[in-house]
Design a protein around this nucleic acid. Structure first.
Lengths: 206, 206
DNA sequence: GCATGAAATTGACGTAACGTCATTTTTGTG
DNA sequence: CACAAAAATGACGTTACGTCAATTTCATGC
C-alpha cells in the first residue's frame, strides 16, 4: 500500500519541475501585465523567478511559447465550464445564454489583476491554435451541430456559426470589459438574442 | 503661380521621405509574410530596403509601429469602400451585405502574396487602436445608428452591435480564407442573414 | 546509508539585435 | 555659389538571445 495511485507527482524531481513551470508562468503573467506582452523579454520573465537563464529554456523555447502555454491553460480551465453549460441547459437558448455568461465571467475574472491595459497584456484570442483552444472551438462547434441535429436550430454551416459565436463573444466581451462596471448578463442577453433572432432578438428586454 | 496647391509632395525632400516610408512598409510586409511577425526583426526589415539602420529609426521606432502603420494604411484604404457601400445601399439589408462583401473582398486581396500562414503574419496580441481603425469602427457604428434612427433596425446598443458585426466579420472572414476557393458571397450571405434574422436568417439560401 | 548515473540546474560565453549619435551627405534658399 | 537645415549613415556600446560544459540534485540498487 505504499504506492497508491499517483495522480499528482510525488517524486521530488516531478515536483520541482511542476513548480518551476508554474513559477515561469506566474512570472510571465505578471510581466505581461506590467510591461505589456510586446515589451516583455524572456530575461524579464526569468528575473521574475529564482531560476537561471538556462533553466528557462528547459521548459519553453521563447516568449511566444510561454504565452501559448498561458493561453492553453486558460482554455483548459474554461472548457469544463463550457461543458457543464451544455449539459445543464434546458433549451438551446438557455445553452447559448449560459455559455456566454460563462465566457464573460471568465474574462472578467481573468483580468482582475492591476497593470497595463488589458489589450496589451495577453489575448483571449481564441484564434491561436493550441490544443486546448482547438478543443474549445470543437466543443462550441459540436454543441451547435447537436442543436441542429435536434432541430433546435436550422441547418447552417456549423463552422461559420461557431466562428460567428466566438468572434461576437470576443468583441462584445472586450467592449464589456471597457465599461464599468461590466454588466455580464446584459452582454450575454444581447449576444444570445442577436444570434437567435437577429436584430429583432437583440432588441428584446433592452 | 509657381506654388500651386501642393497636394502631392513635389520637393525632393518630401519625395524621398515618402519613398523611404513606402520602402520600409513594403519590406516589412514582405518580411512578415516570409518569416512571420513574431520571428521578424527590425534588422530583417532594414535589410529589405536600401537604407541604413539609423534611417529606419527616423521613420518608426519599432517593429510594432511599422505594423501599426500597415494596419492603419489598410484601414485608410478600406474606409472609402465602406462609405460607398453605405451611400449606394438601397436598403439596410443591402448595406450589410455589400459591406461584408467589401470586407471579405478586401481581406482576400490583402492576402494574395505567398508566404507564411496568415495568422502568423500579424501580432498575436495587439488589439490595435490606430486612428484609421477607430474611424472604421465609428463608420460602422454610425451606419448602424442611422439605421436605427430610420427604423430599419430596432433600438439596440450600437456599440455592442458594431462589435458583434466586426467580430463576426473577422472570424468568419478568417475561416473563409482557410477554405479554397474562398466563397465571398456565401460568407457575406451567411453573416448578413445571421445578423438580420438570427439563426433562421443564416439558414436562408444555403 | 552509500555509491552511481541519469536528470536537471547553472551561469558564463559567443552571437546577434537593439537604438543612439557624431559625422557626412543632400536639399532648399538667398 | 554659399550656407544652414534636414536627413542619411554606419560604427559603437548595450542588452538580450540561446547554448553548453561543468556542477548539483535526485532516484535507484545494493
Amino acid at each position: 500500500m505504499t504506492d497508491a495511485l499517483a495522480l499528482e507527482p510525488v517524486g521530488k524531481r516531478e515536483k520541482t519541475k511542476a513548480a518551476n513551470r508554474l513559477a515561469i508562468l506566474a512570472a510571465a503573467r505578471e510581466v505581461f501585465a506590467q510591461l505589456g506582452y510586446e515589451a516583455a523579454t524572456v530575461r524579464d520573465i526569468i528575473r521574475g523567478t529564482q531560476l537561471a537563464s538556462g533553466t528557462f529554456y528547459n521548459y519553453f523555447k521563447s516568449k511566444e511559447e510561454v504565452y501559448e502555454a498561458l493561453a492553453d491553460d486558460g482554455a483548459r480551465r474554461f472548457r469544463p465550464i463550457l461543458r457543464m453549460a451544455r449539459e445543464n441547459a434546458r433549451s438551446f437558448e438557455d445553452y447559448l445564454h449560459s455559455a456566454f455568461v460563462a465566457y464573460f465571467q471568465f474574462i472578467v475574472a481573468d483580468n482582475r489583476t492591476e497593470g497595463r491595459p488589458i489589450d496589451e497584456r495577453r489575448p483571449h484570442v481564441l484564434r491561436m491554435d493550441t490544443p486546448e483552444m482547438m478543443a474549445v472551438y470543437q466543443e462550441v462547434r459540436q454543441s451547435l451541430e447537436e442543436a441542429v441535429a435536434r432541430g433546435d436550430a436550422p441547418r447552417v454551416d456549423a463552422d461559420y456559426l461557431a466562428c460567428a459565436c466566438i468572434g461576437t463573444a470576443q468583441e462584445v466581451g472586450a467592449e464589456m470589459l471597457r465599461r464599468s462596471p461590466p454588466d455580464i448578463d446584459a452582454a450575454a442577453r444581447f449576444v444570445t438574442g442577436l444570434l437567435l433572432n437577429g436584430l429583432q432578438g437583440a432588441a428584446r428586454k433592452s
